[in-house]
Design a protein around this nucleic acid. Structure first.
Lengths: 252, 252
DNA sequence: CAACCAAGAATTTTCGAAAGAATGGCACTC
DNA sequence: GAGTGCCATTCTTTCGAAAATTCTTGGTTG
């Protein structure tokens, strides 16, 4: 399955695609700052709880205050950054309560969105899910072959495929708000998920994530009422694994 | 309108109220810009769909670009403002699809939050609801006496009491995310609600909003499963009234 | 007459400096 | 010796101008 066919654009000028694109080249420095800051927070490069000094960020990213502030403001409303009135910003801390709240909220939002998608989803919806599942599976295979590999590119690809799969499930829910909230909660939980992705957590019941995905997908395609339940179960297991990992090595 | 005199900004001395307060004195100009812009958008002073030129805003509010951009960025993630990469900002348009999505999303969030509050709510929770209901009722009475009054102060007070009542219902849900989302959706729907608050909409079935509130409150205090249903019904009726009003006088 | 291009105008975005507040340390009082 | 007020330092916040980009207009061509 190929991504939507890239309509042959005038290759001459890449700058005519002016819209604030999500993944492509950031059109403004503010957008770039937002993307880089977000990535660094999610990856843990900027440690949870630590203050974000503007001067330090200015040097780190080679930007001026304005775009940085803009980005931080945005990240604040996405719960990745905290700020106090005249005391600046800091990386939002990680905690057990937060992962629980984020998980349960995500379940509420995505289960509803899944039910709605199942109600109205057409062939394209189904095809999108199957395609995403397949691509995710291939990436898992690839990484399983060179097992032990922690190639960051592979991890990033895995995350992206994973995101696309879960997005495909709810893509046809018809509510821009639910989709936005799901996207946002995905990012938030990614912060917690990433660390546990790299190192396998000991002491947790062995888990076949692919099987869980398959179960969700099958139920969804069958339009079975079980689909939402499986999805919730999937997220709760992930949360449990993360909590176990956090108990094992509480971050400094 | 005179240029803003360079009044020395007052330092908020009470260090216990250090956080970026919601209602009180805005600690920074950015916060002030956010509050004023938001109020003007919700009130319709800044018309839906119209572009927000920075130079115009600069003059209108007597501020510089930085705090304005900051505020606009924030409003963008709250769906009150749209922005395109190098083409600036505009007030988010009003539409039937939006009011529907906002209403249904609000029902999803608040019903869940209400159920959770009912599960764990204690005497304080109950007292908060009763108090808010009472205060709301008094305000309604007062305005009914001087009927026909469109005193903006009264309308503002009514809105605030109304907000507090609905907030009290879900206050003990235990999820910061649900509360935030509810707050945000309240603001979004307020944009639609306010116009229909001033002029009574003709052609809609007569409505006793106070009775609806009472019904919700009673069911909630009884911990009845009906509470969420009543709440949903309440919101759907409001949405229907708004849609009727929009059909009657589609905004220019 | 429609499409196209270029120059000018309007607007957004970015910068670096200056002003405003918080933090921490130090002397001073009680 | 503890509390208190003041000062220097550090940091955030704000400004206004400069740079970058889009939009508009008028003229030109096919």
């Amino acid at each position: 399955m190929a991504l939507p066919p890239k309509t042959a654009r005038k290759a001459v000028d890449a700058k005519d695609m002016a819209g604030g694109d999500a993944a492509g080249e950031p059109a403004t420095l503010g957008e770039a700052a937002y993307q880089r800051l977000r990535a660094d927070i999610v990856a843990g490069v900027l440690e949870a709880g630590k203050p974000l000094r503007l001067e330090a960020l200015r040097q780190r990213y080679g930007l001026s205050f304005s775009p940085l502030r803009e980005a931080l403001m945005r990240l604040q409303s996405e719960r990745l950054v905290l700020s106090t009135a005249l005391r600046g910003f800091s990386v939002a801390p990680l905690s057990r309560e937060e992962i629980r709240d984020a998980t349960e909220t995500r379940i509420l939002i995505e289960c509803e969105a899944l039910r709605r998608s199942m109600r109205v989803g057409d062939d394209d919806w189904e095809a999108g899910i199957v395609a995403a599942f397949h691509a995710l599976g291939r990436q898992v295979e690839r990484m399983a072959r060179n097992s032990g590999t922690a190639d960051p590119a592979d991890v990033a690809a895995l995350e992206e495929r994973h995101r696309q799969f879960h997005h495909a499930l709810i893509a046809h829910c018809g509510s821009p708000r639910l989709l936005d909230m799901a996207d946002q909660l995905y990012i938030e939980t990614q912060r917690y998920r990433l660390p546990s992705l790299v190192g396998q957590v000991a002491g947790t019941p062995p888990r076949d994530v692919t099987a869980e995905h398959q179960q969700i997908m099958d139920a969804a395609l069958r339009r079975s009422d079980d689909a939402a339940g499986h999805l919730a179960e999937h997220y709760r297991r992930t949360a449990a694994a993360i909590e176990a990992a956090m108990a094992g090595s509480p971050p400094a």
